[in-house]
Design a protein around this nucleic acid. Structure first.
Lengths: 209, 209
DNA sequence: GAAAAAAGTTTCCTATAGGAAACTTTTATT
DNA sequence: AATAAAAGTTTCCTATAGGAAACTTTTTTC
């Protein structure tokens, strides 16, 4: 009986618990969430049971973290209780008391120069902003200055503050913009701005993802 | 031979499938998702197994929709494969071919007047934007013109284009801004802008939620 | 404040999830 | 093409989830 070969896969192997697996996963809270949702709606387990088609006992056990529900049960919960699935394991977004403000005086932003632009980043005091505003002096005079389309996630808005520029975009004809003109476009589409005035143009950009 | 004996549990029962349960739930696709993620990363079941600490067979069964994984298993999947939980049941956001663009020439936006401001809405051709840009002529000269703080969801950025204004915010001292100055703040905080120059001031606003 | 009703928990059992190993299919390798 | 190796599936068993009903706790009602 020489079955020496496949007898022991994983002789003393670490079936994957140590080497990798960043076990920093915060504890599930799915039970807590469920209970919160149910009580907020003033539902009894019985009512929740009727709504979801799950047994009263099952719901109780889930709420008390005695069992880990299967995905199909989670779907019944979401559907029956009229909530989105992620609500079951995402703790309610703490309606943070927001009162942030950051004033940037003209020319006082954080400089950031490239070959083609000279950016002045605005509102750099605030982290985790929804928008990234900056003013840029446009050095580029033609497409070749770039060589490639600029392309990134999100959407972009720009307003011309000084001079005249051309907004080149992948799927459109170039647009000539003068002071006061603005444009809004998907930044995933190739795009770039070149100056068509004698002096460098000045524009305001804002991106949001 | 034993497998066939107990084949039909649930003789013809529908354990709770009829009465309630709005079954408009799209079929799970969790298996499909998992397989997609795994193959995209060129992982074998064996590798995925090592990463997640789950058995090869379990992964196979999940991928083939033979079982509905428990939440704890889903957590191991997310953690081990370095993905966010919702990725497991949210079909990959169709990287929509975005190529929208809207140019608004100076003064050509959609007008919208109030007692205190004269707004010019920009980029009105695009729906579902992440940002709402507009230019506003500021009539207001003092707080009383408003009577109340302006307050709404999201964040706001403003840049002074002409004149001089004061930015009044609930939790800060008033800030005096001249042409080129800008400010970024949480719009949930009471805020408003008044002109402090002889003429009406002109500012650019952008809000994002 | 005792009895009844309702809400919630635990028990006990069955159905199903998850793991180890056998088996099958696919992919290299010669 | 035959063989070996790797990847994937299925089987079989154990652990656990989920349901029905008994039980306990809380709330209501008289």
């Amino acid at each position: 009986m020489s079955k020496h070969d496949q007898v022991d896969k994983y002789p003393s192997m670490t079936i994957g618990d140590n080497e990798n697996n960043k076990r920093a996963v915060e504890k599930s809270t799915i039970g807590v969430q469920l209970k919160a949702i149910r009580t907020e709606n003033k539902w009894t387990l019985e009512e929740a049971s009727k709504r979801t088609g799950l047994a009263r006992s099952t719901l109780s056990k889930i709420e008390n973290e005695q069992i880990s529900p299967t995905f199909s049960v989670m779907q019944k919960l979401a559907s029956g209780l009229n909530i989105e699935l992620p609500q079951l394991f995402t703790k309610p977004k703490e309606t943070k008391v927001t009162g942030r403000r950051d004033v940037t005086l003209d020319g006082q932003g954080r400089p950031h120069a490239t070959l083609t632009y000279e950016h002045e980043l605005l509102a750099t005091q605030l982290r985790n902003k929804k928008m990234m505003p900056y003013k840029s002096r446009v050095h580029a005079r033609n497409f070749e200055h770039f060589g490639e389309w600029v392309r990134h996630e999100g959407e972009e808005f720009l307003l011309v503050l000084e001079g005249e520029v051309q907004l080149l975009t992948e799927f459109y004809e170039p647009a000539t913009l003068v002071v006061g003109d603005s444009a809004y476009y998907d930044a995933t589409m190739g795009h770039l701005v070149i100056s068509t005035s004698k002096e460098d143009a000045l524009i305001l950009w804002i991106t949001a993802e």
